[in-house]
Computed example of a mutant assay.
Amino acid sequence: MGFSTSGATAIIFVGVLVAAGIAYPVFQTAYEERTTAIENHDDRALEMRNTAIEIASTSYDANGNGNFTMDVNNTGSTVLSVSETDLLLDGVYQESYETSVNGTADRELWQPGETLTVTVSTERPNRVKIVTEHGIAATEVL
């Protein structure tokens, strides 16, 4: 065996070490991101299982100002965001409506056991649907 064979072996060995040094951080980062994604998915799934809402009452004031009012109870164990709760009347997304939690208008969080009151100025709807940030919905046909 001459120097050329030993030199080629050394060059290949150094190349393998450099390739492994480059590949390891990439695989480590991919593994960490995958682990984080799985944990986030599990957290979202747990929040969905613990989220429950129930429409307590609905009313329409046809004689007054034409306001539709709905009370929704948070019957689950998850704290919900008022700003991320969506309202649909007759299948149409409502962009602006007034909300209050247990009578307080400036609340952003909707705790378990509390009641969210939604008031919107509209014509009398036939169907109402409210959807939480976790995709849990309650529908009522009026």
Rank of each mutant, 00 (worst) to 15 (best):
G76M: 02
S83F: 12
E108Q: 12
A20P: 03
R107K: 13
N126K: 09
E140Q: 12
Q111N: 10
L89H: 03
E108L: 10
S4K: 14
H134S: 01
K129D: 05
Q94D: 06
S4G: 03
H41F: 09
T139Q: 10
N50S: 11
T9I: 14
L46K: 13
R49L: 09
M1N: 03
R127L: 13
N102W: 01
V18P: 01
E32N: 10
H41E: 08
G2A: 06
I38N: 07
T51I: 04
A138C: 01
A20V: 15
T75C: 02
E95D: 09
T119C: 05
D90S: 10
E98P: 00
E33A: 15
T99E: 06
T122A: 08
G2P: 03
T119Q: 07
T9V: 14
R34N: 15
T132N: 02
D43W: 11
N65Y: 11
L109V: 11
I11M: 11
A8C: 00
A52V: 08
V128T: 15
T122W: 06
Y97K: 02
D42C: 00
E98L: 11
D86I: 06
N65C: 01
E108V: 11
D43E: 14
T78E: 15
A138F: 03
K129L: 10
H41P: 00
I55Q: 01
V101E: 04
A37E: 07
Y97A: 05
A52L: 12
E33Y: 15
I136Y: 05
R49N: 06
A19D: 06
T115F: 05
D43M: 07
R124K: 14
L87P: 04
G64N: 14
T36Y: 06
S4M: 13
A37R: 03
T78G: 05
Y60T: 04
M48Q: 12
S96D: 06
I136V: 15
M48T: 07
A138K: 03
E114C: 00
E95I: 00
A62Y: 12
T5H: 11
I130A: 00
F3D: 08
T115Y: 05
N102K: 00
T115E: 10
L46A: 15
I136R: 12
M70E: 03
S81W: 06
A52P: 04
E133I: 05
A138S: 11
